[in-house]
Protein backbone atom coordinates (compact mmCIF):
# COMPACT_ATOMS: atom_id res chain seq x y z
CA UNK A 1 0.00 0.00 0.00
CA UNK A 2 1.37 3.38 -0.94
CA UNK A 3 1.73 6.12 1.60
CA UNK A 4 -0.98 8.15 -0.13
CA UNK A 5 -3.60 5.40 0.31
CA UNK A 6 -2.47 4.90 3.88
CA UNK A 7 -2.87 8.55 4.70
CA UNK A 8 -6.19 8.62 2.89
CA UNK A 9 -7.33 5.69 4.98
CA UNK A 10 -6.17 7.47 8.11
CA UNK A 11 -8.14 10.58 7.20
CA UNK A 12 -11.30 8.59 6.48
CA UNK A 13 -11.10 6.52 9.66
CA UNK A 14 -10.34 9.47 11.91
CA UNK A 15 -13.21 11.46 10.41
CA UNK A 16 -15.52 8.50 10.99
CA UNK A 17 -14.44 8.38 14.65
CA UNK A 18 -15.25 12.04 15.10
CA UNK A 19 -18.52 11.47 13.29
CA UNK A 20 -19.50 8.65 15.68
CA UNK A 21 -18.94 10.85 18.70
CA UNK A 22 -21.05 13.59 17.10
CA UNK A 23 -23.77 11.07 16.29
CA UNK A 24 -23.77 9.74 19.86
CA UNK A 25 -24.02 13.21 21.35
CA UNK A 26 -26.72 14.02 18.81
CA UNK A 27 -28.78 11.01 19.89
CA UNK A 28 -28.38 11.88 23.58
CA UNK A 29 -29.35 15.46 22.78
CA UNK A 30 -32.40 14.30 20.82
CA UNK A 31 -33.58 12.05 23.64
CA UNK A 32 -33.20 14.79 26.25
CA UNK A 33 -34.59 17.54 23.99
CA UNK A 34 -37.78 15.75 22.93
CA UNK A 35 -38.45 14.40 26.42
CA UNK A 36 -38.10 17.93 27.75
CA UNK A 37 -40.17 19.53 24.98
CA UNK A 38 -43.04 17.05 25.30
CA UNK A 39 -42.82 16.67 29.05
CA UNK A 40 -42.72 20.27 30.21
CA UNK A 41 -46.18 20.95 28.71
CA UNK A 42 -47.97 18.89 31.33
CA UNK A 43 -45.99 20.23 34.29
CA UNK A 44 -48.34 22.32 36.39
CA UNK A 45 -49.37 22.31 40.01
CA UNK A 46 -52.00 19.61 39.51
CA UNK A 47 -49.42 17.34 37.87
CA UNK A 48 -47.51 17.13 41.14
CA UNK A 49 -50.38 17.33 43.64
CA UNK A 50 -53.29 15.42 42.07
CA UNK A 51 -53.67 11.69 41.47
CA UNK A 52 -55.12 9.81 38.53
CA UNK A 53 -58.58 10.93 37.31
CA UNK A 54 -60.80 10.07 34.39
CA UNK A 55 -58.84 10.48 31.18
CA UNK A 56 -60.70 13.63 30.07
CA UNK A 57 -60.23 15.54 33.32
CA UNK A 58 -57.50 18.13 32.75
CA UNK A 59 -56.82 18.55 36.46
CA UNK A 60 -54.96 15.34 37.24
CA UNK A 61 -51.46 14.34 38.10
CA UNK A 62 -49.03 11.67 39.10
CA UNK A 63 -48.62 12.29 42.83
CA UNK A 64 -49.83 8.75 43.62
CA UNK A 65 -47.16 7.36 41.30
CA UNK A 66 -44.43 9.53 42.82
CA UNK A 67 -45.48 8.31 46.25
CA UNK A 68 -45.51 4.70 45.03
CA UNK A 69 -42.06 4.96 43.45
CA UNK A 70 -40.61 6.42 46.64
CA UNK A 71 -42.22 3.79 48.85
CA UNK A 72 -41.08 0.94 46.59
CA UNK A 73 -37.48 2.14 46.24
CA UNK A 74 -37.08 3.16 49.87
CA UNK A 75 -38.51 -0.11 51.17
CA UNK A 76 -36.25 -1.99 48.76
CA UNK A 77 -33.27 0.00 50.06
CA UNK A 78 -34.24 -0.72 53.66
CA UNK A 79 -34.32 -4.45 52.88
CA UNK A 80 -31.17 -4.52 50.76
CA UNK A 81 -28.89 -2.10 52.64
CA UNK A 82 -28.25 -3.97 55.91
CA UNK A 83 -27.80 -7.33 54.18
CA UNK A 84 -25.46 -5.80 51.61
CA UNK A 85 -23.32 -3.98 54.19
CA UNK A 86 -22.97 -7.09 56.33
CA UNK A 87 -22.23 -9.26 53.31
CA UNK A 88 -19.57 -6.80 52.16
CA UNK A 89 -17.98 -6.72 55.62
CA UNK A 90 -17.92 -10.51 55.67
CA UNK A 91 -16.33 -10.69 52.24
CA UNK A 92 -13.67 -8.04 52.85
CA UNK A 93 -12.88 -8.56 56.55
CA UNK A 94 -13.50 -12.24 57.22
CA UNK A 95 -13.58 -14.30 54.04
CA UNK A 96 -10.36 -15.39 52.38
CA UNK A 97 -9.29 -14.06 49.02
CA UNK A 98 -10.47 -17.02 46.96
CA UNK A 99 -13.93 -17.12 48.49
CA UNK A 100 -14.29 -13.39 47.96
CA UNK A 101 -13.33 -13.68 44.31
CA UNK A 102 -15.83 -16.41 43.58
CA UNK A 103 -18.53 -14.47 45.44
CA UNK A 104 -17.66 -11.40 43.38
CA UNK A 105 -18.10 -13.30 40.13
CA UNK A 106 -21.50 -14.60 41.20
CA UNK A 107 -22.57 -11.12 42.36
CA UNK A 108 -21.50 -9.71 38.98
CA UNK A 109 -23.56 -12.27 37.12
CA UNK A 110 -26.50 -11.56 39.42
CA UNK A 111 -26.24 -7.84 38.81
CA UNK A 112 -26.72 -8.33 35.10
CA UNK A 113 -29.59 -10.80 35.25
CA UNK A 114 -32.40 -9.31 33.15
CA UNK A 115 -34.79 -7.43 35.42
CA UNK A 116 -37.81 -9.14 33.86
CA UNK A 117 -36.46 -12.48 35.11
CA UNK A 118 -36.27 -11.03 38.63
CA UNK A 119 -39.92 -10.10 38.15
CA UNK A 120 -40.90 -13.65 37.20
CA UNK A 121 -39.05 -15.11 40.20
CA UNK A 122 -40.68 -12.61 42.57
CA UNK A 123 -44.05 -13.44 41.12
CA UNK A 124 -43.62 -17.16 41.76
CA UNK A 125 -42.04 -16.70 45.21
CA UNK A 126 -44.16 -13.90 46.64
CA UNK A 127 -47.20 -12.97 44.57
CA UNK A 128 -48.43 -16.56 44.23
CA UNK A 129 -48.18 -17.51 47.93
CA UNK A 130 -49.72 -14.18 49.02
CA UNK A 131 -52.40 -14.63 46.37
CA UNK A 132 -52.21 -11.14 44.96
CA UNK A 133 -50.08 -8.39 43.52
CA UNK A 134 -48.62 -6.23 46.26
CA UNK A 135 -46.31 -3.35 47.08
CA UNK A 136 -44.31 -5.76 49.22
CA UNK A 137 -43.54 -8.10 46.32
CA UNK A 138 -42.49 -5.08 44.22
CA UNK A 139 -40.14 -3.86 46.93
CA UNK A 140 -38.61 -7.33 47.34
CA UNK A 141 -38.07 -7.61 43.57
CA UNK A 142 -36.28 -4.25 43.60
CA UNK A 143 -34.28 -5.28 46.70
CA UNK A 144 -33.09 -8.40 44.88
CA UNK A 145 -31.85 -6.16 42.09
CA UNK A 146 -30.14 -3.78 44.51
CA UNK A 147 -28.26 -6.33 46.62
CA UNK A 148 -25.50 -7.34 44.20
CA UNK A 149 -24.88 -3.72 43.14
CA UNK A 150 -24.80 -2.48 46.74
CA UNK A 151 -22.63 -5.33 47.98
CA UNK A 152 -20.04 -4.81 45.25
CA UNK A 153 -19.97 -1.06 45.84
CA UNK A 154 -19.59 -1.54 49.62
CA UNK A 155 -16.83 -4.07 49.06
CA UNK A 156 -14.94 -1.59 46.88
CA UNK A 157 -15.39 1.12 49.49
CA UNK A 158 -14.20 -1.13 52.35
CA UNK A 159 -11.25 -2.44 50.34
CA UNK A 160 -10.09 1.11 49.70
CA UNK A 161 -9.39 1.62 53.43
CA UNK A 162 -5.77 0.84 54.12
CA UNK A 163 -4.70 -2.15 56.15
CA UNK A 164 -2.94 -0.07 58.79
CA UNK A 165 -6.25 1.28 60.14
CA UNK A 166 -7.43 -2.27 60.78
CA UNK A 167 -4.14 -3.07 62.48
CA UNK A 168 -4.33 0.08 64.59
CA UNK A 169 -7.83 -0.84 65.73
CA UNK A 170 -6.85 -4.40 66.60
CA UNK A 171 -3.74 -3.13 68.40
CA UNK A 172 -6.01 -1.04 70.61
CA UNK A 173 -7.52 -4.31 71.76
CA UNK A 174 -10.78 -3.89 69.88
CA UNK A 175 -12.59 -6.89 68.54
CA UNK A 176 -12.69 -7.35 64.81
CA UNK A 177 -16.40 -6.54 64.62
CA UNK A 178 -15.81 -3.23 66.41
CA UNK A 179 -12.98 -2.42 64.03
CA UNK A 180 -15.14 -3.31 61.04
CA UNK A 181 -18.15 -1.30 62.14
CA UNK A 182 -16.72 1.66 64.03
CA UNK A 183 -13.52 2.26 62.09
CA UNK A 184 -13.55 0.72 58.64
CA UNK A 185 -17.23 1.15 57.79
CA UNK A 186 -17.22 4.68 59.18
CA UNK A 187 -14.18 5.62 57.13
CA UNK A 188 -15.70 4.08 54.02
CA UNK A 189 -19.02 5.85 54.56
CA UNK A 190 -18.70 8.00 51.45
CA UNK A 191 -18.13 5.10 49.11
CA UNK A 192 -20.90 3.07 50.70
CA UNK A 193 -23.41 5.90 50.32
CA UNK A 194 -22.35 6.42 46.71
CA UNK A 195 -23.04 2.76 46.02
CA UNK A 196 -26.46 3.06 47.63
CA UNK A 197 -27.33 6.14 45.59
CA UNK A 198 -26.28 4.34 42.42
CA UNK A 199 -28.42 1.30 43.23
CA UNK A 200 -31.32 3.54 44.24
CA UNK A 201 -31.10 5.43 40.95
CA UNK A 202 -31.08 2.15 39.08
CA UNK A 203 -34.20 0.67 40.67
CA UNK A 204 -36.07 3.97 40.79
CA UNK A 205 -36.29 3.83 37.00
CA UNK A 206 -37.12 0.14 36.86
CA UNK A 207 -40.40 -1.00 35.29
CA UNK A 208 -40.30 -4.60 34.14
CA UNK A 209 -40.18 -6.45 37.50
CA UNK A 210 -42.96 -4.20 38.85
CA UNK A 211 -45.38 -5.24 36.09
CA UNK A 212 -45.70 -8.68 37.66
CA UNK A 213 -45.39 -7.65 41.32
CA UNK A 214 -46.59 -4.15 42.26
CA UNK A 215 -48.87 -4.18 39.19
CA UNK A 216 -49.84 -0.48 39.37
CA UNK A 217 -52.79 1.31 40.88
CA UNK A 218 -54.99 4.31 40.27
CA UNK A 219 -54.88 5.51 43.84
CA UNK A 220 -52.44 6.28 46.61
CA UNK A 221 -50.58 3.63 48.58
CA UNK A 222 -53.01 1.64 50.69
CA UNK A 223 -50.83 -0.92 52.43
CA UNK A 224 -47.98 -3.27 51.64
CA UNK A 225 -50.32 -6.09 50.66
CA UNK A 226 -52.14 -4.02 48.04
CA UNK A 227 -50.95 -3.13 44.53
CA UNK A 228 -49.24 0.23 44.21
CA UNK A 229 -48.39 2.55 41.34
CA UNK A 230 -44.99 3.84 40.31
CA UNK A 231 -43.87 6.56 37.93
CA UNK A 232 -42.58 3.95 35.52
CA UNK A 233 -45.75 1.81 35.61
CA UNK A 234 -47.82 4.94 35.02
CA UNK A 235 -45.74 5.89 31.97
CA UNK A 236 -46.18 2.40 30.56
CA UNK A 237 -49.93 2.35 31.13
CA UNK A 238 -50.54 5.88 29.81
CA UNK A 239 -48.29 5.48 26.77
CA UNK A 240 -50.60 2.73 25.48
CA UNK A 241 -53.76 4.74 26.12
CA UNK A 242 -55.67 6.54 23.36
CA UNK A 243 -56.18 9.69 25.46
CA UNK A 244 -54.10 12.74 24.68
CA UNK A 245 -54.16 14.00 28.26
CA UNK A 246 -52.71 10.73 29.53
CA UNK A 247 -50.03 10.64 26.83
CA UNK A 248 -49.02 14.19 27.76
CA UNK A 249 -48.86 13.14 31.40
CA UNK A 250 -46.74 10.11 30.42
CA UNK A 251 -44.27 12.55 28.81
CA UNK A 252 -44.33 14.74 31.90
CA UNK A 253 -43.63 11.70 34.06
CA UNK A 254 -40.80 10.63 31.72
CA UNK A 255 -39.25 14.07 32.05
CA UNK A 256 -39.46 13.90 35.84
CA UNK A 257 -37.98 10.40 35.89
CA UNK A 258 -35.17 11.36 33.52
CA UNK A 259 -34.28 14.47 35.52
CA UNK A 260 -34.31 12.53 38.80
CA UNK A 261 -32.10 9.67 37.57
CA UNK A 262 -29.73 11.99 35.74
CA UNK A 263 -29.69 14.21 38.84
CA UNK A 264 -28.70 11.30 41.08
CA UNK A 265 -25.96 10.24 38.69
CA UNK A 266 -24.58 13.72 38.13
CA UNK A 267 -24.44 14.43 41.86
CA UNK A 268 -22.63 11.13 42.50
CA UNK A 269 -20.07 12.03 39.85
CA UNK A 270 -19.58 15.58 41.07
CA UNK A 271 -19.29 14.39 44.65
CA UNK A 272 -16.82 11.64 43.77
CA UNK A 273 -14.84 14.04 41.60
CA UNK A 274 -14.56 16.47 44.51
CA UNK A 275 -13.51 13.71 46.87
CA UNK A 276 -11.01 12.22 44.44
CA UNK A 277 -9.46 15.66 43.84
Amino acid sequence: MGIRTRLMKQRVMISLSYLSILLTLGILGAVIFFTFLNGIKSWNLAFFTEAQKFPLNPRQGISHAIQGSLILSLTASAIAAPISILAAIYLTEYADERLRESFDSILDVMASTPSIVVGVVSYILIVLPLQGFSALSGAVALAIMMMPIMTRACEDALMSIERRYREAGLALGLHKWRVSLSIILRMAKGGVLTGFALAFGRVFGETAPLLMTALGSRTFFSGFFEPVSSITLLIYEYSKSPFEIWIDIAWGASLLLMLLTLGINVSIRLWMGKKGG
Binding site: T35, S239, L257
Partner: peptide, 11 residues
Amino acid sequence: AAIPSIVYGMW
Protein backbone atom coordinates in the same frame (compact mmCIF):
# COMPACT_ATOMS: atom_id res chain seq x y z
CA ALA B 1 -26.72 4.57 30.36
CA ALA B 2 -28.43 6.10 33.41
CA ILE B 3 -31.61 7.11 31.58
CA PRO B 4 -34.35 4.57 32.47
CA SER B 5 -35.43 2.26 29.69
CA ILE B 6 -39.07 3.35 29.90
CA VAL B 7 -37.93 6.88 28.95
CA TYR B 8 -36.14 5.46 25.90
CA GLY B 9 -39.34 3.55 25.22
CA MET B 10 -41.46 6.73 25.20
CA TRP B 11 -38.95 8.38 22.89
